[in-house]
């Protein structure tokens, strides 16, 4: 009798576990899935209950988003900025991380401290000073050459992205370089390879797992970023999240929801696909590398 009672408590507990897990899963899946469903609804369907299923597959929303709301251009801009920023970041951060991890030289301690200190600088505080700096520089350039080009410049935006990601990236890469045995370098030197060749041919290829992690984290943060892009690109050459934000602000007065949800799908889809492909690496990498914020 007593045993039976214990069993039923156990069963109730199991039930509680699954109810709790499912509840959280549903509150995450449903809103995300709903955006996908809403993106193929027709205009009239937004006036009925939001829980109704779409009548058909209204792909026109995506065409409108691309043509009328300019999302196609924004998407290209986003792809360009993200790719360029990751490229700059890797070219700059890899050699620096390698040297900081493997060599001690005059000033290496100061450099290490500087990059560590950079971890505590938050982009949201310094975005306005960066804007003012570029504005001032543009003023000077305009005086000399007739036109400024630092604001509204996607390359500068990518450069700022790469710079703000440097401290965390160097921290992650150099802690990986430290774990590699130094016998490889010694062997390369014995074979007559110079410092540069040793780094590019031997050490950087060995750091591949950490490079993959760096690309993953930074792809997500550059692709999703909007406050720097909003501040530094006041002109029409926007990135996707900023374009989406404008669309959201415009939809509050107009009523063309379809385009807006199509735009949201365009922002979400690449990150979701990437996440599904590499989710294991990402959550493990996070456990290793600590915070990404």
């Amino acid at each position: 009798m007593k045993k039976q009672k214990k069993m039923s408590v156990e069963k109730l507990y199991r039930l509680f576990i699954y109810v709790a897990l499912l509840t959280l899963a549903i509150t995450i899946i449903i809103p995300v899935a709903w955006v996908f469903i809403a993106s193929i609804k027709e205009k009239s369907e937004f006036y009925t209950s939001p829980w109704d299923m779409p009548k058909g597959f209204y792909f026109q929303n995506f065409i409108d988003a691309f043509e009328k709301a300019n999302m196609g251009t924004y998407m290209l801009n986003s792809i360009m900025v993200t790719a360029l920023a990751i490229l700059i970041l890797l070219v700059v951060a890899l050699p620096a991380a390698y040297v900081l991890a493997r060599y001690t030289f005059k000033g290496s301690k100061i450099l290490n401290t500087l990059f560590k200190a950079g971890l505590f600088i938050n982009v949201n505080y310094i975005v306005v000073p960066i804007f003012l700096m570029l504005l001032d520089a543009d003023m000077v350039i305009r005086g000399r050459f007739g036109d400024g080009f630092l604001l509204d410049n996607l390359f500068v935006l990518a450069l700022v992205y790469a710079s703000t990601a440097l401290p965390f990236t160097i921290y992650l890469l150099s802690s990986y370089f430290q774990t590699l045995p130094s016998t490889y370098e010694e062997a390369a030197w014995v074979d007559g390879a110079g410092y540069f060749k040793t780094m590019y041919k031997i050490m950087i290829p060995m750091a591949r797992p950490s490079i993959v992690a760096v690309i993953l984290f930074n792809f997500l943060s550059f692709w999703n970023e909007y406050i720097i892009a909003l501040t530094l690109i006041p002109g029409p050459n926007k990135t996707l999240p900023v374009g989406l934000m404008n669309l959201m602000a415009a939809q509050k007065s107009a009523t063309n929801y379809g385009q807006m949800y199509a735009g949201m799908v365009l922002v979400m889809l690449p990150t979701l696909i990437l996440y599904i492909l590499v989710q294991k690496k990402l959550t493990q990498g996070m456990a290793l590398g600590g915070s990404k914020e």
Binding site: V91, V92, A93, P95, A96, Y98, V99, L100, Y103, F105, L111, L114, F115, G118, I121, Y125, I126, P129, I130, L132, M133, L159, V160, A162, S163, T164, L166, P167, I170, G194, Y195, F196, M199
Partner: peptide, 29 residues
């Protein structure tokens, strides 16, 4: 000398970007 050049070339770009877009703006704040 070669080692010095190597270290200089590897760390300078990162240091420049960090100074220009993070340290200077922070001091500016």
């Amino acid at each position: 000398t070669e080692k010095r050049i190597f270290i200089f070339v590897c760390t300078t770009p990162a240091l420049l970007l960090l100074t220009l877009f993070m340290i200077v703006p922070t001091i500016e704040v």
